[in-house]
């Protein structure tokens, strides 16, 4: 049986088709989900893609969080369903309080678009089991509001519990506290990051194929369970 992974399209999503393609290349069956539809169509996991949902009005992810589809995604995420939030999807997960902290405007105020080296700090999540802890990967990064912030207590807890999943290497591109590029929840099923693994899944279009592991991790985990 093929693993069905849903990709939500909000008005203003940009990277939903790339996310679906990445799932397909990883051997899963991508399922398009619509923001106004509460039904997740029996998917086994969900990806919240990059872009500018609802025009990023109010705050990035703030309006998407209250969309009908998110009510079901939040419910299912709390029940253990794997959810990956990429860039705008990460912002939606923070606004939904599925992940702690918030994403703020890049400290240098410029939109950043580069191939970014990252270190995988936690290879135990639903989306990183195909990596090794300490592995270094390069995937594209593109954001204007990617500075990860949380209070010191939350940051200390994330570090102590191994919930920092990715850290920026070489440069901190957006002023994120403690070079944090991505984090996970306590259970390890919800992962959010600013860089874009879905843009690095085949040699023709990506700088590397380092991002494919996100999607193969989820496909394998779901087949095994």
């Amino acid at each position: 049986m093929t693993t069905r992974i849903g990709v939500v399209t909000f008005p203003g999503s940009l990277d939903d088709s790339d996310a679906r393609r990445a799932i397909r290349i990883a051997g899963g069956e991508p399922v398009a989900l619509w923001h106004r539809d509460k039904d997740l169509h029996q998917v086994d996991a969900v990806v919240l893609p990059g872009g500018f949902s609802y025009g990023d009005y109010l705050r990035c992810g703030a309006i998407a969080r209250f969309s009908p589809v998110m009510q079901t995604v939040i419910e299912q995420a709390k029940a253990g369903m794997p959810v990956l939030g990429i860039c705008n999807g990460f912002q939606v997960l923070c606004e939904s309080h599925l992940l702690p902290g918030a994403l703020t405007r890049n400290d240098h105020l410029h939109f950043v678009c580069r191939d970014q080296r990252l270190r995988v700090e936690n290879a135990g999540t639903a989306w990183t089991s195909d990596y090794e802890s300490g592995q270094e990967i390069t995937v594209p990064l593109k954001n204007g509001e990617g500075g990860y912030v949380a209070d010191e207590r939350t940051l200390d807890a994330l570090e102590a519990e191994g919930r920092v999943v990715f850290r920026y290497l070489d440069v901190n591109p957006n002023g994120s506290r403690r070079d944090i590029a991505g984090i996970t929840n306590e259970a390890g099923n919800v992962v959010g990051l600013m860089p874009h693994p879905e843009h690095a899944v085949e040699a023709l279009t990506g700088p590397t194929t380092d991002g494919l592991g996100f999607f193969t991790s989820a496909v394998k985990k779901l087949v095994a369970s």
Partner: peptide, 14 residues
């Protein structure tokens, strides 16, 4: 308003 401890790069630019 952003909390006092949160960096406000837009305000700084102004």
């Amino acid at each position: 308003m952003l909390k006092p401890e949160i960096l406000d790069p837009q305000g700084q630019a102004v």
